[in-house]
Deep mutational scan, measured.
Amino acid sequence: GATAVSEWTEYKTADGKTYYYNNRTLESTFEKPQELK
């Protein structure tokens, strides 16, 4: 079976905060997504 690849990509803001962006739902969040835990 195919492994589900996380759609979340980790980015940093200009002031160094980490956030996560989902390229399928176009959602962004500062909290670590469930799929990455």
Rank of each mutant, 00 (worst) to 15 (best):
S28R: 09
T18A: 07
G16A: 01
F30R: 03
T9P: 00
E10K: 04
E31Q: 10
E31K: 07
L36N: 07
L26R: 09
G16F: 02
L36V: 06
T18Y: 08
S6K: 09
Y21H: 09
E10L: 06
V5W: 12
L26S: 14
G1R: 01
A4Y: 07
D15Q: 05
T3W: 09
L26N: 15
S28M: 15
L36G: 06
L36H: 08
Q34P: 11
V5N: 12
E10P: 04
Y20A: 01
A14D: 10
K37I: 15
T9N: 08
Y20P: 01
G16P: 00
T25D: 03
Y21S: 04
N23F: 08
D15W: 05
Y19W: 11
E10Q: 09
N23K: 09
Y21E: 06
T18M: 06
E31V: 12
G1P: 13
L36Q: 05
K17W: 06
A14M: 10
E7F: 06
G16D: 04
P33R: 01
T9M: 12
E7H: 07
A4R: 02
A2F: 13
E31I: 14
D15G: 07
F30M: 07
K32S: 04
T29E: 02
W8V: 01
T25M: 00
N23D: 10
R24F: 15
K17D: 08
F30H: 07
T29P: 00
S28T: 15
V5E: 13
F30T: 10
K32A: 06
T18Q: 04
T13H: 04
N23Q: 08
G16M: 02
E10F: 04
N22V: 01
T29F: 05
S6H: 11
Y11V: 11
T9A: 10
G1H: 14
F30A: 07
G1E: 13
T18L: 10
T29M: 06
S28E: 10
V5L: 14
Y19Q: 04
S28K: 13
E27F: 04
Y11M: 15
G1A: 15
R24W: 15
S28G: 10
Y20R: 00
P33V: 03
A14N: 09
S6G: 11
G1L: 13
K32L: 09
Q34Y: 11
Y19L: 09
L26Y: 14
N22Q: 00
N23I: 09
S28P: 02
D15I: 03
K12D: 03
N23G: 05
W8A: 00
Y21I: 11
Q34N: 13
T18N: 04
Y19S: 04
A4F: 09
K32Y: 06
T29L: 05
E27G: 02
E10Y: 04
E31H: 08
G16W: 00
Y11A: 08
Q34I: 12
S28L: 15
P33A: 02
T25S: 03
T9I: 12
A2G: 12
R24G: 09
Q34G: 10
Y21W: 10
K37T: 13
T18I: 11
